[in-house]
């Protein structure tokens, strides 16, 4: 589904990613782990098309297409989803309205009929159960006044509604207390499916208690320095990232 070859990325002239290679198939869950500043979030944002990041070298293929040549909204319509580390407040834009607009854009791109307000509400109620979200969130402006945990839940709700093929979760566990982590990570786990790939970007192992990855990669200094199975995450938790360096 996703193939990254020798990806180099710079921000404001500073090279952050220095040659990433990664292959992700449908149905797989990959965890990208690494210390702060290793380039994990950069990788996540580049895949979603954030304009601040400049790809200087390399190829990213998504379903056989050159992902980097596809505009941001078009990536989303073709099934790429990024759960933000820091979700953005959108004052004055109602959460449900926003989500309906997004879903209908994606449905249009797929050649499906747009959902009307009633149909959408039904779908939304169904999906809200996944992240145990209260209906009052729907009529509030997107992320405005949400707590850290509520924002993350809202991201996962969006993921559930938009039903992407490739979901990239950027530090979704950060800033969550144990109860919220359980709900959010549990929600993600429920969305595992044979035709969906999930890329979990995380600093800690704790999220992986709820979502068992098929592969774990360690990103350090802009490169993947180690790859392995789920046990690698436990080793990292136990020994720290210094162990990889040594």
């Amino acid at each position: 589904m996703l193939e990254i070859k020798n990806l180099h990325v710079s921000v404001e002239g500073v090279e952050i990613l220095k040659g990433i290679d990664l292959k992700v198939n449908a149905g797989e869950v990959h965890a990208i782990m690494g210390p702060n500043g290793s380039g994990k979030s950069t990788l996540a944002r580049v895949l979603a098309g954030h304009p601040a990041y400049v790809v200087t070298k390399g190829i990213v293929t998504y379903e056989g297409k050159d992902l980097l040549a596809i505009p941001v909204e078009e990536r989303a319509r073709q099934g790429v989803f990024l759960a933000f580390q820091y979700p953005i407040d959108i004052p004055g834009v109602n959460n449900a309205y926003f989500l309906k607009a997004a879903l209908n854009e994606i449905r249009k791109a797929k050649g499906l009929e747009e959902l009307d307000a009633m149909e959408f509400l039904e779908l939304l109620k169904e999906k809200m159960k996944i992240v145990e979200m209260d209906a009052s969130f729907l009529n509030r402006p997107v992320n405005e006044g949400f707590s850290g945990g509520e924002k993350k839940r809202n991201e996962i709700l969006q993921m559930a509604v938009l039903s992407p093929k490739l979901a990239i979760l950027d530090e979704t566990d950060s800033g969550l207390d144990i109860d919220a982590l359980k709900i959010v990570a549990g929600g993600v786990d429920k969305m595992r499916s044979p035709d969906r790939a999930i890329l979990l970007v995380t600093h800690y192992q704790r999220m992986l208690d709820y979502i068992t990855p098929d592969y774990v990669h360690v990103l350090m200094g802009g490169k993947i320095v180690l790859s392995g199975g789920k046990d690698l995450a436990f080793k990292l938790e136990e020994k720290g990232y210094e162990w990889v360096r040594a």
């Binding site: 304009p51 941001v72 989303a76 926003f98 989500l99 879903l103 969006q158």
Partner: peptide, 18 residues
């Protein structure tokens, strides 16, 4: 805000509509 435009676009909403 550029970040807000990006956020909406990353959900499939076109740039002008965002």
């Amino acid at each position: 805000q550029e970040d807000a435009v990006f956020y909406l676009r990353s959900r499939g909403i076109g740039e002008k509509e965002a």
